[in-house]
Computed example of a mutant assay.
Amino acid sequence: MARTIAEIQNEILIEKGKQSSLNGLDNNSKASIWKLWVNIMATAIWVHEKIVEKNALISRPHTLNWYREQSLNFLYGAPLTSDASKDVVPIIWKDGSYQFDTTGLDDDLEKYKIIKYCAVSEIDLETVINPSKDVEEIFSDYFHNKVGVVFIKVATQKGDSIARIDVPNELFAFKEYIAKIKDAGNQVYITSDDGDILKLNLNIYVDPLSIYVDPQDIEYYQLKSLSRELTATEVDKINNHGSVSDLNGSLITKPDTFPVLDAIKNHLKNIEFNGAFVKTYLVDDIQKAEGVKIPVLKNVKTSIAKNPSDLENPLINDVSNIEYFIPRAGYFDLDALEVEVNYIPYTFYRDKQ
């Protein structure tokens, strides 16, 4: 940030005081020649620093973080004036770059920023090139794997949840905005999708003094928790058991509180946009929940969201053997979250007596 004229003048005066040869300049009048020259030099230096600062700002390299910053600063549908015919903020060329003309707008620009979440990435060329390949194959892989493309994932906020930008003109306007401000020659791929689907299956050993488990459901949960192949008799017991109690997994003192389910939802909410789902981190958070003794994450399945215009459901992928992965949309749809928990009373301490 450029210094003010007063700051530069003060530094000149401090340096003058260090030079004994200038002690004769002791006239403190503001109209004295030497003070006028100090002011002239300070002003000239200030102008120079402002020019350098502006050039540095304009010529800053457009990194991935720059694309993210510009995306989050996108303004949609902000009225320029009270004139209803001017219902959008124009993008103008100013000081060497495209900028929004916010003349006449109030200070609350946040209400026009529809992009609340953004992640920008690209594919590293080294990840797809094999040095032993022929040149023709290398160039084929180069384009096939979209190397050199900037990927931008964006989402908005609806209530307390992350959501895709589902108003067609909003996403269209944002794409036009990026096309106008991006570097020449760069390819940009923009997506805004519904949150990915997540299905979890867990065995949770709980403190029976804190967590409610209906005694009639214990054998059912124990059979379902087994990792071995079940016998025909055991399968029949599961199929004939019927529905389990809705209170299973709740706190005995607070029947409307389900610590395990709450811990899972809070963990998923706190994953940053386009951040990785890490199985170990999820288990760690469940372990901290009240009444939980041993959490075991048995199975994890995920898929992209179903396209409303598509009659077929998306393929559900079993990712239980993967320690971490990033949801394709950048986040999970918590309304579509499916969690199956086998609540088993923790009684191992009595088994050893």
Score class of each variant (00 low, 15 high):
306 K>Y: 02
15 E>W: 08
9 Q>C: 07
162 I>F: 08
124 D>V: 05
322 I>F: 06
150 V>P: 02
226 L>Q: 15
246 D>F: 12
152 I>D: 05
50 K>L: 14
38 V>Q: 09
337 L>D: 13
317 N>A: 13
309 S>Y: 12
113 K>Y: 04
137 E>T: 13
42 A>K: 04
108 D>V: 13
241 H>E: 03
45 I>P: 00
255 P>Y: 07
286 I>E: 05
188 V>H: 02
162 I>V: 15
3 R>H: 09
296 V>F: 03
139 F>R: 12
202 L>G: 00
273 F>C: 03
313 N>I: 01
31 A>N: 11
90 P>Y: 11
321 N>I: 06
64 L>Y: 07
188 V>I: 14
199 K>T: 14
157 Q>M: 15
330 G>Y: 05
352 K>T: 12
141 D>S: 11
304 I>F: 03
2 A>P: 12
97 S>D: 09
299 N>Y: 15
158 K>A: 08
261 L>Y: 11
274 N>A: 15
35 K>A: 03
85 S>K: 14
61 P>W: 03
312 E>M: 04
30 K>V: 08
217 D>R: 02
90 P>D: 12
189 Y>P: 01
25 L>Y: 14
221 Y>N: 10
269 K>P: 01
93 W>L: 15
298 K>Y: 02
58 I>H: 00
227 S>F: 02
343 Y>K: 01
203 N>V: 06
157 Q>G: 00
295 P>T: 12
160 D>E: 13
241 H>D: 05
237 K>P: 01
182 K>D: 12
232 A>T: 13
283 V>P: 02
185 G>R: 05
310 D>V: 06
275 G>Q: 00
94 K>D: 14
159 G>I: 09
50 K>D: 01
270 N>C: 00
225 S>C: 09
102 T>Y: 00
145 N>M: 06
108 D>W: 05
65 N>P: 01
68 R>G: 15
273 F>L: 04
328 R>Y: 10
318 D>L: 02
118 C>F: 04
201 N>L: 09
237 K>D: 06
56 A>F: 09
48 H>E: 10
180 K>S: 08
239 N>T: 13
60 R>T: 14
271 I>Q: 02
11 E>K: 11
148 G>Q: 08
138 I>R: 11
262 D>A: 14
219 E>V: 09
219 E>N: 12
255 P>M: 04
319 V>E: 07
43 T>H: 14
127 T>S: 15
288 K>D: 12
310 D>R: 06
80 L>T: 08
165 I>L: 15
229 E>A: 12
205 Y>Q: 10
38 V>I: 15
352 K>N: 11
245 S>Q: 01
231 T>V: 10
263 A>P: 10
93 W>G: 09
43 T>A: 12
114 I>T: 10
135 V>L: 14
23 N>G: 02
196 D>A: 12
277 F>I: 10
30 K>M: 04
149 V>S: 04
87 D>L: 03
266 N>I: 03
107 D>K: 14
103 T>N: 11
186 N>L: 06
14 I>Y: 11
144 H>T: 13
187 Q>E: 07
73 N>M: 08
200 L>S: 07
114 I>C: 07
4 T>Y: 07
143 F>T: 09
323 E>L: 07
33 I>F: 14
139 F>G: 00
11 E>H: 04
121 S>Q: 08
218 I>M: 10
14 I>K: 15
269 K>S: 07
67 Y>H: 09
267 H>A: 07
170 E>I: 10
78 A>I: 08
268 L>C: 01
104 G>N: 05
261 L>P: 01
48 H>Q: 04
311 L>Y: 06
285 D>R: 13
